[in-house]
Amino acid sequence: MHAPPRGRVYAIYYTALAAIAVPVNIMAIVILSRGRCGLPNCITRYLLSMTDLLVIFTAVILNRIPAIYFPGSFLSITPVCSLRIALIYAARDSSVWLTVAFTFDRFVAICCQKLKTKYCTDKTAAVVIGMVCALVCLKSVPWYFIHEPLYKIDNVPWYCKLKKIRYASPIWRTFDWFGRILTHCLSFILIFLLNAVTVRYILAASRARSRLRAHSNEEIQSDPEMESRRKSIVLLFAISGSFILLWMTYLVQLLLERFISDYKIKSFSDPKFVLQESGNMLQLLCCCTNTFIYCSNSE
């Protein structure tokens, strides 16, 4: 995940991604913070927490761009490098689980009317966001201690490489494998199932409403409720579809890495490295697309 990419394609892509994602996310934060979007406070809190500005800052601005344009800078000193890696895991995993939390909140709001008044509140959203961020940060701390210097110059440690204990210790292998399954596989399943159930509920409610209007012999006209439900379906499909498609390559690479016995990357031109970096590029692209989706559907 943290190998420095090389080549004009990577340089252009990550520079453009940072140039677009940073102002887009800042604009989203400003708009949502004003509270003039007509959204409940709980939704606004989730959208603010999901702007992914920290992901862009840690994974692109502090990691990818310096590796391309400023190799050997102070950011490559081992303690700083280890801290960057831990922050990347914390920011990325927080983004994933906050998306799951938001999806669950919308599921409750649409499908569980009795629970809605108690769960879909500003206070609950704040507690959930705080718990998710705290647990993810706690889970990311071990990544700071699993790296060692690649070499030393004048007693200054440079760059990061995984310690041998990462591969030799069953505890570390279990920790890494469990964390990746939890973040990538389980989040996929939860988002897909919650959205599937929500869309099914909306479609069933819409059909019942259509039959009721037909039996009451109402004139055919625009139905605000039906239009609202249609927009909800579009939003849910956009969120789940974008998330799954842009993370799929990363998930495939992860599975190959785990189930192929001799999975070693030999060079930057190695197809395995290209697959890995493609997964990282698409995964980070979520930081732009998610913000566009949430804000364009916030009205």
Rank of each mutant, 00 (worst) to 15 (best):
H2Y: 13
P4L: 11
P5L: 14
P5V: 00
R8S: 11
R8A: 10
V9F: 08
V9M: 11
Y10T: 11
A11F: 04
A11V: 13
Y14S: 08
T15S: 04
T15W: 00
T15F: 02
A19N: 13
A19V: 01
V22A: 09
P23N: 03
P23F: 03
N25R: 05
N25E: 03
N25C: 01
I26S: 02
A28F: 01
R34D: 15
R34T: 06
R36N: 13
P40I: 01
C42T: 09
T51G: 06
T51M: 01
L53C: 11
A59C: 13
V60R: 01
R64S: 07
R64A: 07
I65K: 05
Y69L: 07
G72D: 03
S73Y: 06
S76C: 12
P79W: 12
S82H: 14
S82M: 08
R84F: 02
R84P: 02
A86H: 04
I88W: 07
Y89K: 05
Y89L: 07
A91N: 00
R92P: 10
D93M: 04
S95A: 04
L98K: 01
L98W: 00
T99Q: 02
V100L: 00
V100N: 00
T103W: 00
R106W: 00
F107Q: 02
I110Q: 14
Q113P: 05
L115I: 09
L115M: 04
T121H: 05
T121M: 08
A126R: 00
V127R: 11
A134E: 04
C137D: 07
S140Q: 03
S140A: 09
I153M: 06
I153K: 12
I153S: 08
D154R: 14
D154G: 07
N155W: 12
W158E: 06
C160S: 06
K161R: 10
K164C: 06
I171K: 08
F175N: 04
W177Q: 13
G179E: 12
L182Q: 14
L182E: 13
T183Q: 02
T183P: 14
H184E: 08
H184A: 06
F188M: 09
I189M: 09
I189V: 13
L190K: 05
I191M: 03
I191W: 00
I191N: 02
V197K: 14
T198L: 01
T198R: 01
R200Y: 14
I202H: 02
A204T: 15
A205W: 15
S206M: 15
R207V: 11
R207D: 13
A208P: 10
L212Q: 14
R213N: 07
R213F: 02
A214P: 03
A214R: 12
A214G: 13
H215V: 10
E218Y: 10
Q221N: 12
P224D: 12
E225N: 10
M226S: 11
R229V: 06
R230K: 15
L236G: 05
L236I: 14
F237H: 09
S242G: 09
F243H: 03
I244W: 10
L245Y: 03
T249F: 03
T249M: 13
L254M: 05
E257I: 12
E257R: 07
F259R: 15
F259I: 05
Y263D: 01
K266D: 15
S269H: 15
D270I: 06
P271G: 09
K272L: 05
F273T: 08
N280W: 00
Q283K: 13
L285G: 06
C286A: 05
F292E: 04
I293Y: 00
I293L: 01
S296R: 14
S298L: 06
